[in-house]
Design a protein around this nucleic acid. Structure first.
Lengths: 111, 111
DNA sequence: GAAGCGTATCGTATATCGACGATTAACTAT
DNA sequence: ATAGTTAATCGTCGATATACGATACGCTTC
């Protein structure tokens, strides 16, 4: 346990100027991480990564959620760019956006 | 644009059994990513990574938020394990939990 | 023990999330 | 056109997140 002011100094001995990271960068990061900040969305992403692409209906089948709820999660994933949907007649074929995924991975890896 | 059922088949040609990832794993991932799912928390984490440790008050100074709000974000970061706080007399010295950070990085990298 | 400092917690208000069923929209096939 | 299939959207509700000021707590110092 730190006890004195000197110890505190030692504890926080970084003398570098306290420069906050770019606000835009933080919002970017937050947006992408937020896309994965729900178990259902994590599972959807994992599912798509395993299958290269997937019909919306197939996703619904594998989730203990209503179709409308899954659709909402997919909408969020699309908005963050992590997932793309391609219309296929009455169906929609979802797949991972690899660039967005790479961006997320890089952002986290570079933390 | 995909047009026929055959094309759809081609689009979603994965014949592997649709096996969902572990629910626990998904919740784990969601919990950790949720910790970063807010710009303020991203900035706090970045700040701590730059400084190895930091007094709560210093964090508050750099954020456009009230002290109580920053304290709440720190609480969330502590609950997810990403950040540790060490009491130092009247102050609290925060630092990154490197194991938790490594876990997050691995989870994302292995996606 | 009283005062001062730094942080956590409480209480509250607003906004957003997450879930669902119902409905609508888009496309196919008959 | 009509019916059927699939996905998106709407409306709603309860739960949670986020923000703040006010207050309580813990520690140090006098």
């Amino acid at each position: 346990m730190v006890r004195t002011k000197e110890d505190a100094q030692k504890c926080c001995n970084s003398s570098e100027k306290l420069s906050l990271p770019d606000v835009v960068w933080a919002e970017d990061m937050a947006k992408l991480t937020w896309a994965l900040a729900h178990p259902a969305r994590v599972r959807i992403v994992r599912l798509l990564l395993n299958r290269t692409s997937c019909m919306c209906g197939e996703i619904v089948e594998e989730m203990p959620l209503a179709q409308s709820t899954v659709s909402q999660h997919l909408k969020i994933l699309k908005e963050t760019g992590l997932v793309q949907g391609e219309v296929d007649g009455p169906r929609v074929c979802y797949c991972i956006n690899k660039e967005a995924m790479a961006k997320l991975k890089k952002l986290i890896a570079d933390l």
